[in-house]
C-alpha cells in the first residue's frame, strides 16, 4: 500500500475551514508549460486530473462549448484530490464544477467557491498546440 508523506501543505493552521485568497484568473507571464494530454483524451463536460511537479495536482476540464479550464484538483473543504471528478455546468452562465464529495460549487474561470467567496481553488493557464493540452505554471 502506498503511504506517502506530503509536502504541499506546511504549517496547516488550525482553522476548520479553508480560508484562502479570492480566486483570480491566471496572470500572463513567463510560465513553465506542463503537458497534460491530447485534446482527444478529454470528454466534453468532464474533467481529468493532471499531476504537476512538486506533487501538486490540477483538474482540467473541456466543456461541451469548447472552453478549456484548469483549476486545482484538491477540494479545500474535503482535503481530498477529487475536483477533476466533479460535474460541470453553469450557474447563471458562469462555468462551474461541483465537488463530488459535498457538492460545493466552484467557478471554473476564477476558482472561487460561489457560495463562499473567501475560498478558491488555484487556477492554471491553459494552452492547446497541435492537439496537446498544456498547463502553465508560474516559474
Amino acid at each position: 500500500m502506498t503511504t506517502l508523506t506530503l509536502s504541499p501543505v506546511e504549517e496547516a493552521p488550525t482553522t476548520s475551514r479553508a480560508v484562502v485568497r479570492p480566486g483570480m484568473l491566471p496572470t500572463p507571464g513567463t510560465r513553465q508549460w506542463i503537458v497534460a494530454c491530447p485534446v482527444s483524451r478529454l470528454v466534453p463536460g468532464r474533467g481529468v486530473a493532471v499531476l504537476l511537479p512538486g506533487s501538486a495536482q490540477a483538474a482540467l476540464f473541456l466543456l461541451p462549448n469548447g472552453m478549456i479550464y484548469a483549476v486545482g484538483n484538491l477540494d479545500p473543504y474535503a482535503g481530498a484530490a477529487v475536483i477533476s471528478r466533479g460535474l460541470t455546468g453553469d450557474r447563471a452562465g458562469d462555468p462551474t464544477v461541483a465537488s463530488p464529495l459535498l457538492k460545493q460549487v466552484f467557478s471554473l474561470r476564477t476558482g472561487v467557491a460561489l457560495d463562499d467567496p473567501e475560498v478558491a481553488l488555484p487556477t492554471y493557464a491553459v494552452r492547446v498546440q497541435h492537439g496537446t493540452v498544456r498547463l502553465g505554471l508560474p516559474r
Binding site: 493552521p13 482553522t15 484562502v20 488555484p122 508560474p138
Partner: peptide, 20 residues
C-alpha cells in the same frame, strides 16, 4: 493503519493558493 481498523488520512487544510 495503526489503529484497530484502516482509516483514510485527509490532507491538512487549508490549501495555500498559488499566485499563478
Amino acid at each position: 493503519e495503526s489503529g484497530p481498523r484502516k482509516v483514510p488520512v485527509l490532507l491538512g487544510l487549508p490549501t495555500i493558493r498559488e499566485n499563478v
